[in-house]
Amino acid sequence: MTDFEYGPVEIYLIGFSGERPGTDVVDAIRDLVRAETVNLLDLLFVTRSDLGELTVLEIEELADDYGLNDLEVAEMGLAGDEDVEDLAESLAPGTSAAILVVEHAWAREFAQALDRAGGMVLGSERIPAPVVNELVAMTSA
């Protein structure tokens, strides 16, 4: 039987106006980790200056500012330099983003079951929450 150390992983680029995300976003990430909905594998913050210069900050560089000292990051460095560059390419001057690498904890056992059965995920598509909610509102009206 195959035991997976991790289930499916997603990388999110979460954009913000200004230099840094608000504390509400950081609190939401902390809540997901505490609830064991996701395992935080890597977390970086990137900022593009008004002149276009990109600054990348590791979580330990911001831990004190955001009270993240208690937040465990399991696989720091999983988002490599090339990933960061590719993701940050779309970042407009004067904005920032968090690069969040998470494992969907709920899906690990499902992935193991698929593997044991000789199955595999052939496709997956994420529909952003604003789109889903807009569609539901339109069909409910």
Results as ranks from 00 to 15, higher is better:
T2I: 13
F4N: 08
E5V: 13
Y6Q: 10
Y6R: 14
E10A: 14
I11Y: 04
L13H: 11
I14P: 00
I14T: 07
I14N: 05
G15S: 12
F16V: 00
G18R: 02
G18H: 02
R20T: 06
P21M: 01
P21Y: 00
T23Y: 03
V25G: 01
V26F: 03
D31M: 07
V33P: 00
V33M: 02
E36Y: 06
E36Q: 15
T37V: 14
N39V: 12
L40H: 05
L41H: 02
L41C: 09
L43T: 01
F45V: 11
F45P: 00
V46H: 02
T47A: 15
T47H: 15
R48V: 04
D50C: 06
E53D: 13
E53K: 14
E53G: 05
E53Y: 08
L54S: 04
L54G: 04
T55K: 10
V56Y: 01
I59K: 09
I59P: 02
I59D: 07
E61H: 12
E61Y: 04
E61I: 08
A63G: 12
D64H: 11
Y66K: 05
L68M: 15
D70K: 10
E72P: 03
A74V: 13
E75M: 15
E75P: 04
L78Q: 03
A79N: 04
G80T: 11
D81C: 04
D81A: 15
D83S: 06
D83E: 12
D83N: 11
E85G: 08
S90I: 13
T95N: 08
T95C: 07
T95Y: 01
S96R: 00
I99A: 03
L100S: 00
V101E: 00
E103H: 03
H104V: 08
H104E: 06
H104F: 10
H104K: 11
H104G: 05
A105I: 09
A105P: 01
W106P: 01
W106T: 10
A107F: 09
F110I: 11
F110A: 13
A111I: 01
Q112P: 00
A113S: 12
D115K: 09
D115A: 14
A117Y: 04
A117M: 11
A117H: 05
L122H: 12
G123S: 13
E125F: 08
R126P: 03
I127P: 03
A129T: 15
P130G: 04
P130N: 06
V131T: 13
N133Y: 05
E134T: 12
A137V: 04
A137Y: 00
M138N: 06
M138S: 11
M138H: 06
